[in-house]
C-alpha cells in the first residue's frame, strides 16, 4: 500500500557499492556482500585449518564440523559416486550460509533475499544435474519420468506430471530460500514499525509499550539465525537429492 508509514521493501533496494568506481562498472551492494562473504569464508578456513592439529582447537573444530556435516549428507544421499560433488555442495552451503548470516546484521545487505541470486544458483544446480544424468545414463535418463510399478494406463497422466515436477524444481528450490530470507527481514521491519507508530501515537507511554515489539524482534533474531542455517542446509540437501536422481535414477 502506498500510504504505508514505513518502507519495508526499501532494505532490498540495490545501491552502488565501492564509491564512484563501483557505480561506473555497476558494482552493487549485493556484489559487495558476496565479495565479503567469499573473503570471510576463505580467511575463516585458512585461519582455522592453518594449525592442522590432531586434537583440534575450537576454531579448527568449527571448520571440521561444518565439513563433516556436509560430507555425511553427501554420503548418505548420493553414496560413493557423490564424493565428486562434495566440494560443489559444500561451497553452495557455506556461501549461502554466510550470505544469510551476514544479512542478519544491521545495515548489511542480505544477497540471498534477491530472487536473481537464488535463481542463478538453483538453475545452475538444475542444469548440472540434468547434464550429469544424461552423461551417466545417456537417453536412459528419461526413465526418471516413468514412475516404477505404475499401471500402464496411468502413464499418459503420470509422465506429464513428472516432467512438470522436474522443471518446477529450480523454481521451488530458489523461491524457498529467497522467500524465507525476504519474509524474515520484512517481518523485522514491520515489527520495528510498530515501535515508531506507538511512540508517535502515545508519546512517553508509547515508548514504554514499544519494549514489547522490541522484545519480539530480539526473539526473531534467534529464529532468523536458525532459519539462516536451516535454509542453507536445505538448499544443500536438495542439491544432493537432485544429483542423486541424476546419478542413480530414483
Amino acid at each position: 500500500m502506498a500510504s504505508s508509514p514505513i518502507d519495508v521493501l526499501g532494505q532490498f533496494r540495490l545501491t552502488t557499492g565501492l564509491g564512484p568506481l563501483g557505480g561506473a562498472v555497476g558494482f552493487t551492494n549485493s556484489n559487495e556482500m558476496m565479495l565479503l562473504a567469499a573473503v570471510l569464508i576463505v580467511t575463516f578456513f585458512a585461519l582455522a585449518l592453518r594449525a592442522g592439529a590432531i586434537v583440534p582447537g575450537r576454531l579448527q573444530a568449527s571448520a571440521e564440523i561444518s565439513f563433516e556435516l556436509i560430507r555425511n549428507m553427501c554420503d548418505e544421499t548420493m553414496g560413493k559416486e557423490g564424493r565428486a560433488f562434495f566440494p560443489f555442495v559444500f561451497l553452495l552451503f557455506i556461501f549461502i550460509l554466510m550470505g544469510n548470516l551476514l544479512g542478519l546484521f544491521p545495515y548489511f545487505f542480505a544477497f540471498t533475499s534477491h530472487l536473481a541470486v537464488t535463481a542463478t544458483l538453483a538453475i545452475f544446480v538444475f542444469l548440472l544435474s540434468t547434464v550429469v544424468g544424461f552423461w551417466k545414463h545417456g537417453l536412459g535418463y528419461l526413465k526418471l519420468f516413468v514412475p516404477e510399478g505404475a499401471p500402464l494406463w496411468l502413464l499418459p497422466f503420470l509422465i506429464p506430471i513428472e516432467i512438470l515436477s522436474y522443471f518446477s524444481r529450480p523454481l521451488s528450490h530458489s523461491v524457498r530460500l529467497f522467500a524465507n530470507i525476504t519474509a524474515g527481514h520484512v517481518l523485522w521491519e514491520v515489527i520495528a514499525g510498530f515501535m515508531f507508530m506507538l511512540t508517535a501515537a502515545f508519546g512517553g507511554i508509547g515508548i514504554l509499550a514499544a519494549i514489547l515489539p522490541l522484545g519480539m524482534n530480539v526473539a526473531f533474531v534467534a529464529l532468523e539465525t536458525f532459519v539462516a542455517f536451516i535454509q542453507a542446509y536445505v538448499f544443500a540437501i536438495l542439491t544432493c537429492i537432485y544429483l542423486k536422481d541424476a546419478l542413480h535414477l530414483h
Partner: peptide, 18 residues
Amino acid sequence: LGFALSEATAIFALLVSF
C-alpha cells in the same frame, strides 16, 4: 528437512500477503 519444506509453504503465503 521436513520442517524447512513445510515452513517454506507457509512463507510463500506470507510473502504473497506482504
